[in-house]
């Protein structure tokens, strides 16, 4: 601060009387612009030093306390005729600022509301539950299965068609374990689950069996009791018409079909489509190799058991001919001599 300052006089506009006289710091001037009219003004600050020297500073400024009116409805230079209506819009500088938009709390609440509603819909809506139901693991209906009365005779036919090739004609066990007298038969839930879902030990799933058919199977197996072995069952059901090649003897095809339905259909399915890990025979190019087919039937491969001990050359040739000439396959016949050569 300058010690040489004697006084500072502040004049407004052309006034001769100073608005304020400052003699000691701080040299602060307070001017209430509401007391002077809107428009251009001049502030003259005269500083007098102790030596008598004078300095003058002039500041131009503009006061605008009252907002100008805005005319809405008629423009500058606009041509008008007849009755004219317009509005004079005035502002208010002193009015408090209006808060626009959402507050933080409002935003959070509305977000929770909207997202929560979406979440609740997808978590509890029955229509979404239906979608989830479509993805449910199909478990064997335990209660339902137990309620169904089994028919041992029907179960016997079913067993011969679907199970005998692995579990033996009389459920005495072969490639698969013995089922006659097996305690698993008494446990409906476990039995149904194993049959429907298969096992890791190589048994394929038989999901196509109904609860009634499972009950029939259990009734039949329970009737065996493990002691006496029932006579071998006849092959089931009328076979699908085989499309035999011209050079294939229909009698051989018929015999092959019988052998197939008894020994092979449980895994490879009556229609030759295969099941799970068991390969399809229909449309299988590997069947073109007659030696491979004979070898597989005689000796098996992977989880497939060999049938060389159970089937004679005639039957092996017949079933090989059948699978090579059915379901659209057309690879020609296999003779018993070829089978004998491979033994």
């Amino acid at each position: 601060m300058n010690q040489n300052i004697e006084r500072i006089e502040v004049f407004l506009d052309e006034s001769k009387e100073p608005l304020q006289v400052l003699t000691s710091p701080p040299f602060k001037v307070k001017l209430d612009t509401r007391q002077i009219p809107d428009g251009p003004h001049t502030l003259r600050v005269v500083t007098t030093y102790k030596g008598g020297q004078v300095e003058e500073e002039i500041i131009d400024f503009e006061v605008d306390n009252l907002p100008s009116p805005f005319i809405d409805g008629i423009d500058d230079g606009q041509q008008v005729r007849g009755e004219v209506e317009f509005e004079v819009v005035t502002g208010d500088y002193a009015a408090p600022k209006s808060k626009g938009g959402l507050s933080v709390v409002g935003a959070v609440v509305s977000a929770i509301l909207v997202l929560g509603l979406v979440w609740f819909y997808f978590a509890f809506s029955p229509s979404v539950t239906d979608v989830v139901k479509g993805q449910a693991v199909e478990a064997a209906g335990e209660g339902a299965a137990a309620a169904v009365e089994g028919d041992a005779a029907a179960g016997k036919e079913l067993f011969a068609a679907q199970c005998a090739s692995c579990h033996g004609a009389n459920a005495e066990g072969a490639f698969g374990p013995a089922l006659a007298g097996n305690p698993i038969v008494e446990n409906a839930a476990s039995f149904d689950k194993i049959v429907k879902e298969g096992t890791n030990a190589g048994m394929p799933p038989f999901a196509q069996l109904t609860d009634k058919e499972l009950a029939d199977l259990r009734a039949y197996l329970a009737s065996l009791g493990g002691a006496e072995a029932a006579p071998a069952a006849e092959p089931a059901a009328a076979a699908p018409a085989a499309e035999a090649a011209a050079t294939v003897d229909p009698a051989v095809m018929s015999e092959g079909e019988t052998v197939y339905l008894t020994n092979c259909a449980a895994c490879h399915q009556p229609n030759g489509e295969g099941l799970g890990t068991f390969p399809a025979l229909a449309g299988n190019a590997n069947l073109a190799d007659a030696n491979l087919v004979i070898d597989r039937i005689l000796n098996g491969a992977g989880t497939m058991p060999g049938f060389g001990g159970q089937l004679d050359d005639q039957k092996v040739a017949a079933v090989a001919t059948y699978i090579r000439n059915s379901w659209g396959n057309d690879f020609g016949p296999v003779t018993p001599a070829e089978v004998a050569a491979k033994r």
Binding site: W119, V137, A139
Partner: peptide, 18 residues
């Protein structure tokens, strides 16, 4: 996440989901 909870709830009450 709603569907996930729906599936978990279905698994707990009705039966296993894949």
């Amino acid at each position: 996440s709603g569907v996930f909870v729906n599936a978990i709830a279905y698994g707990l009450t009705e039966g296993p989901v894949k």
